[in-house]
Amino acid sequence: MDSQKKALLNYCIALGDDSLTLGHRLSEWCRNGPFLEEDLALTNVSLDFIGRARMLYSYAAEVEDQGRGEDDIAYLRDCREYRNFLINELPNGDFAFTMARQLMIDAFDVGFYKGLTQSADEMLAAIAAKAIKESRYHLRRSEDWIKRLGDGTDESHERTQKAFDQLWGYAAEMFEMASDEQQLVDAGIAVDRSALKAEWSSTMHSVLKEATLDIPAQDWAIGGGREGIHTEHLGYLLAELQYLQRTYPGQQW
């Protein structure tokens, strides 16, 4: 496999991992939402992300052309082979933590997938065209929630501020290019993520300001997801996700 093809494969898998880990976390909210209407809404968002992961993995499998399918990629790789940003794999915490994370990711995704619709790779552009519609809606929702929570009661304000404080340092890696990503940018296939930071910051500033929240100090950053260095949480996520495929190898379900 030539190096660009290999890079494209890694790229699709990494994007799929972002979508799957977050979709998985959001699916944990199903039957646990703060009220029934929101339970249904969160599940729809989860379905969008898992659906996105399926498209990206299927395309990765096609690029690789080694007979693997979407489920082989999702269920038969271990922690070190997962390439998602750490922010996606963190446990849900309370509703404020979940929505604060969602705002950070949705604001990133809107910029990212908008860029990816222009990809020279037709399949990625098509996946992005679908994803961008979803992400615009997700962002509208998470902005709305952060305003309600930030400017709600003292308790909700405190919980939401704390959530952003705990999450903030995980944003940095969303704007750092992986080692083999630049060649895809040069080929017009991938998005230059480092260029997305300004718009992301401006969205975050305006939403948090309206929500009467402080922008957390920018004095820490934890990354490593694209290199397969994760938090300890991912192992447990995968243990659940992969349980049946690992216990009964090679079966059809």
Partner: peptide, 20 residues
């Protein structure tokens, strides 16, 4: 019908509840 805090939110939830 459904429950929501305001009309804008009700419209969003109508999508999740009645337009799946």
């Amino acid at each position: 019908s459904l429950h929501a805090e305001d009309p804008a939110q009700a419209l969003d939830y109508a999508r999740d509840v009645y337009l799946r």
